[in-house]
């Protein structure tokens, strides 16, 4: 039996091998998949907003890219992951609606991806692949066995990164 763990919006989960972590319908949110190939400990976060320092209410760490990555790494280390061996894959950060005005709201996807890159760089976690941007939603599945990130879309096919 496959151990499928669902990650909701503004949510994160870490797990031992064997597990498949999945999050459905990533739009402007960014999916951050972390993987330690040596211990096969995996983690997946579905973050909504780029920066916790710009918002007052931050009770849910998984909501923000920066705090979500911190917490996810911490949970993975608790499960025995080795910090130096962790690699990252990114998905999501799309711009679902094309607006001619109100640029700030609409660029949120791009800003989420930028924030994830910056945060991972500061933690020395390399991003080995990503499928971000565009104007379409993505469902992702992270396999603890191979570290493969499966990305499903409507009308833009399926890919593995």
């Amino acid at each position: 039996m496959e151990n499928i763990i669902k990650v909701g919006m503004a949510d994160l989960k870490a797990s031992h091998h064997p597990a498949i972590l999945t999050t459905l319908g990533l739009g402007s949110c960014v999916g951050i998949a972390l993987f330690d190939r040596t211990t096969k400990v995996v983690g997946l976060a579905h973050a909504m907003l780029p920066d916790s320092t710009q918002v007052k209410n931050k009770t849910n760490a998984a909501k923000f890219v920066d705090t979500a990555i911190d917490l996810l790494v911490e949970e993975m280390l608790n499960l025995g992951a080795v910090k130096k061996k962790i690699v990252a894959k990114l998905a999501g950060g799309a711009q679902m609606f094309v607006f001619t005005q109100g640029a700030e709201l609409m660029r949120i996807g791009h800003r989420n991806v930028e924030a994830a890159r910056k945060k991972l760089e500061s933690l020395n976690i390399p991003i080995i692949s990503e499928d971000t941007g565009g104007n379409y939603g993505r469902t992702v599945e992270l396999d603890s066995d191979s570290g493969m990130l499966l990305i499903r879309t409507i009308g833009y096919g399926i890919k593995q990164i």
Binding site: G25, T59, F99
Partner: peptide
């Protein structure tokens, strides 16, 4: 109201757009 913009996609991805706005003020 502004002129509407349209997107056809997964429900979760569409809903994330307004949900993100809520995210700025609460949970």
């Amino acid at each position: 109201p502004s002129v509407p913009e349209l997107a056809i996609d997964m429900a979760g991805a569409i809903i994330s757009v307004p949900a993100i706005e809520f995210g700025k003020i609460g949970d």
